[in-house]
């Protein structure tokens, strides 16, 4: 049984294992409601089954006359449930309040959601597609969306909050267990909604700072091509453009540099050479010249969200994706 059900991997029958300070109280509220619900469900179904068996129809035995109403009974089964749901509301509310009231001086990470990837920007300017956080530290995510509504959901932490275009939303947590956890998008956002996932890495004290420094150094010391390879992942290019020649939502980057492409500009089909300037334009204004083919013109503009050095890096990376002649 346990090999078959998901309990085998980690956590309980109901939940993945608890990874944040918020998880234990939230789960406690769940089990509190579960206890009350199970009691009333068994009571209702038990009484129903008993009545069906005890008072099943028998030839010549009519129904017995009983009272048509009973005010005391009605008030009892109005006010006992009312008291219980009052308690459920209260516990649900106080635990929620702890989740929503922001802690003093947390470590802040900027989060951007877009179709269909995440990027997490840290205090030293490093941007990564995964979320890295220190253990036992209050972390606040300051979140915004580039396009439609997304929702950041970390099941192990029992936290979730929407990323709404046009406003900033916040979410905080304090991780309690080292390890890696899935981070998912919970608000439907289109084609690759179910692939808009990332990994949360919870690092031991000291390890997080080390990761952050290394990541920063890697970026500073990178060759333009390596920087481009990294941006290809962190900026979300990878969700639509493959590097192995397979067509995705956009054309593959393999062997794309130096080719002639038929594109549509202002409704006219023209031929362009895929060179540095075309690539630069396609990053900054992707809808201007849309390549003709089995693709969707869904790419957001990167105008104002990418530095020149980074564009050059991406171009160098795309140039490098050329099979040897």
């Amino acid at each position: 049984m346990s090999a078959w059900l998901p309990v085998a991997r980690d956590g309980t029958f109901w939940f993945p294992s608890q990874g944040s300070t918020n998880a234990a109280p939230a789960d406690w509220v769940f089990y509190f409601i579960l206890g009350i619900s199970a009691f009333f469900f068994l009571l209702i179904v038990g009484v129903m089954t008993f009545f069906v068996l005890r008072y099943r129809r028998r030839r010549g035995v009519p129904a017995q006359a009983t009272a048509h109403h009973n005010m005391a009974l009605e008030l009892t089964w109005t006010f006992i449930p009312l008291g219980l749901v009052g308690a459920i509301f209260y516990f649900g509310f106080v635990v929620f309040l702890d989740q929503r009231v922001q802690p003093n001086s947390p470590y802040e990470i900027l989060v951007t959601g877009r179709k269909w990837s995440w990027s997490f920007t840290y205090s030293n300017g490093v941007t990564d597609r995964d979320l890295h956080v220190p253990l036992d530290t209050d972390v606040r995510l300051v979140m915004s969306s580039d396009d439609v509504i997304h929702s950041l959901f970390i099941p192990a932490f029992r936290v979730k909050y929407d990323l709404v275009p046009g406003r900033i939303t916040k979410l905080w947590f304090r991780a309690t267990r080292e390890g890696q956890y899935p981070l998912l998008c919970a608000e439907y956002c289109g084609t690759e909604h179910s692939n808009m996932s990332a990994t949360v890495h919870v690092h031991r004290p000291g390890e997080f700072e080390k990761w952050l420094n290394d990541a920063s150094n890697r970026v500073l010391q990178m060759s333009p091509r390596d920087l481009g390879a990294r941006l290809y992942v962190t900026k979300g290019c990878a969700s639509c453009h493959s590097v192995d020649g397979k067509a995705g939502w956009g054309p593959s980057f393999r062997n794309i540099f130096g080719r002639q492409h038929v594109v549509r500009e202002d409704g006219r089909e023209i031929q362009v050479l895929v060179d540095e300037n075309y690539l630069r334009e396609s990053i900054l204004d992707p809808q201007k010249k849309v390549v003709v083919g089995p693709y969707s013109a869904v790419m957001p503009t990167y105008q104002g969200r990418i530095k020149d050095q980074e564009i050059n890096g991406l171009i160098e990376y795309i140039k490098s994706l050329k099979d040897a002649p």
Binding site: F30, I88, G92, F93
Partner: peptide, 12 residues
């Protein structure tokens, strides 16, 4: 529905 009406559990 009680699990979804309660704030703390609905978040998850």
């Amino acid at each position: 529905g009680l699990f979804l009406g309660a704030l703390a559990t609905d978040v998850h």
